[in-house]
Nucleic acid binder design. Structure first.
Length: 502
RNA sequence: GGCGUUGUGGCCGAAUGGCUAGGCAGCGGAUUGCAAAUCCGUCCAUGGCGGUUCGAUUCCGCCCGACGCCUCCA
């Protein structure tokens, strides 16, 4: 099968071929853990997940790594992000947003990082993000790789790509790397002219070139600091990815690197400079795939406008007024092509809810017809071939979903085969159920069994009331069941319920 | 200013040099005590102006609009 992806590095669709037969090495830029991840973050992460699942569908083994950035990097003129997180955490504990015992000492950045790491992993697992189930093996933390960073910085100095400035800061010399700017379409001249303003002149004058970026900063007062040949301090914010990608993927050149579009410059541009500088390879990643931003109601998410939603805001009903099943959010965040600005809205979420319900019920009806016995199918099956071909075209998810929808409304001559097809499709979409093969689905409804039993009881009462033509009682009971969070259906065999998805 | 993306029906969102996915919503009907779900049917589109062509939404040119990055940011 011919797979084509839009490669940010060459700015065109290219035929994808892995460097090694049957194996794809892939690195995704992961979350920073000084706050909860928001739905925009997850849009990007789930795009990476979709990409990985597609590659697995067509037969690759995907060696996937995603980092956790737990070093709180300095922002010019402001507090360190970990310091900011600490004061936020104290505030949240006061207001009860964060449970009292959750973080014993908010002034310990490692505790803050641990708290948000676990929060991230929990949300990510609910959303079926595969790599979150591979923590910690494939999900390294930056603070565990400080030694590796120092090694790489030392190597870069040795090779003439980095230098120690008079203030003791180690900078990467962009002029030493002719390819610098290729990914972002920048030239050193452009960068130079655009560099005025924000960055203090005093700082700039110590660099050889205004675009030179920091690799190590000696700073005794930083909240997180480590000893190094260049003094006690902390690493620059690009070096961790170069180091961890190489260490965990065990390759100088990897197949795919993913991230949000905003990371193209400077983050990924700098990663390329560092990695190629140290390995001498022409490329760091063969393919760079970037997801565009998620919008909310047509605009970039904004804290001041109250459109800054975390995943758990959605799950817990703070966005729509009702709890939303993770499968619905996953569908909503992955249903649009990754290189378009997906617009998140309540209506979109509702649409996704309907779509997900239909797909879940399709799965259930196939399970019933077959007693769960599915036939083995492979990509030669015409429907799967179409599905895979759609995704092979730069992850054309909309066309793939069109195919799935057609499938969902077909009556199948061979339900065993249909279930087999469905399982393959679901291995990519991960919707019905969302964590198939990853964890026990019943976990997601934890603690609600009593509510389920109660609702079932009401169903029998409702049936009795209908038999007696006591319709006011029947309507009352239906209302009651719905308010408990279930959808009510009246069929020939009596009343049945489904847990509401949103 | 530089680099890049994008403009399809009420909404989301594909595809294509001629026969124009899919979903949601709407409308009509079947079903129903009512409702939900389901099923059947149905309305609605290619930003503007030129050009190439027998024929363009698709190719070319210009114009208009939207968006991102260039600075911490998925």
């Amino acid at each position: 099968m011919e797979i084509r992806f839009y490669n940010s590095l060459t700015k065109q669709r290219e035929l994808f071929e892995s460097l090694r037969l049957g194996v794809v090495s892939m690195y995704s830029c992961g979350p920073t853990v000084y706050d909860l991840a928001h739905i925009g973050n997850f849009r990007t992460f789930l795009f990476g997940d979709l990409l990985r699942r597609f590659l697995e569908l067509v037969g690759y083994r995907v060696d996937h790594v995603m980092n956790i950035t737990d070093v709180g990097h300095m922002t010019d003129g402001e507090e360190d992000r970990m310091t900011q997180a600490a004061s936020r955490m104290k505030e949240n504990k006061k207001t009860g947003r964060v449970a009292e015992g959750a973080v014993a000492n908010p002034d310990d950045p490692y505790q803050i990082a641990e708290y948000y790491t676990q929060a991230f992993l929990s949300d990510a697992r609910k959303l079926g993000y595969k790599i979150a189930f591979e923590y910690p093996q494939r999900v390294p933390k930056a603070t565990d790789h400080i030694d590796g960073m120092q090694e790489m910085i030392g190597e870069l100095i040795k090779r003439g790509h980095a230098y120690v400035a008079e203030d003791g800061v180690v900078y990467y010399s962009v002029e030493s790397f002719p390819e610098y700017g290729r990914l972002s379409g920048n030239t050193l001249e452009n960068l130079q002219s655009g560099a005025g303003g924000r960055v203090s002149d005093e700082n700039q004058s110590r660099k050889r070139h205004p675009a030179d970026f920091m690799l190590w900063k000696p700073d005794q007062h930083h909240i997180m600091k480590w000893a190094s040949p260049w003094g006690v301090g902390y690493p620059g914010w690009h070096i961790e990815c170069s180091v961890m990608a190489r260490k965990l993927l065990k390759r100088d050149v990897i197949d795919i690197h993913t991230g949000g579009e905003d990371l193209i410059f400077p983050h990924h541009e700098c990663e390329i400079a560092q990695s190629c500088g140290v390995t001498g390879s022409r490329r760091f990643a063969n393919f760079w795939l970037h997801a565009r931003f998620l919008f909310v109601n047509g605009e970039k998410m904004s804290k001041s406008k109250g459109t800054f939603y975390t995943a758990r805001d959605v799950f817990e009903g703070r966005v729509t007024g009702n709890p939303v099943h993770p499968a619905v959010l996953r569908y909503e965040l992955t249903k649009a092509h990754y290189r378009t600005n997906l617009d998140f809205s309540e209506k979109g979420l509702m649409d996704s809810g309907m779509a997900v319900r239909r797909l879940i019920e399709k799965r259930q009806s196939l399970e019933q017809l077959t007693n769960g016995q599915s036939a083995e199918v492979d990509l030669t099956h015409p429907l799967l071939a179409q599905f895979a071909a759609a995704l092979a075209d730069d992850l054309n998810i909309a066309e793939a979903l069109a195919i799935v929808n057609q499938f969902a409304r077909t009556d199948h001559r061979d339900p065993h085969e249909a279930l087999g097809v469905w399982k393959k499709i679901n291995s990519v979409l991960a919707i019905a159920p969302i964590t198939e093969g990853l964890l026990d689905e019943s976990d997601s409804g934890g603690g609600q069994d009593d509510a389920m039993r109660q609702a079932e009881e009401w169903c029998r009462e409702l049936d009795a009331a209908r038999r007696d033509k006591n319709y006011s009682r029947a309507d009352e009971l239906r209302k009651l069941i719905q308010d408990t969070g279930f959808e009510v259906r009246t069929g020939k065999e009596g009343t049945t319920i489904q847990r509401a998805l949103m």
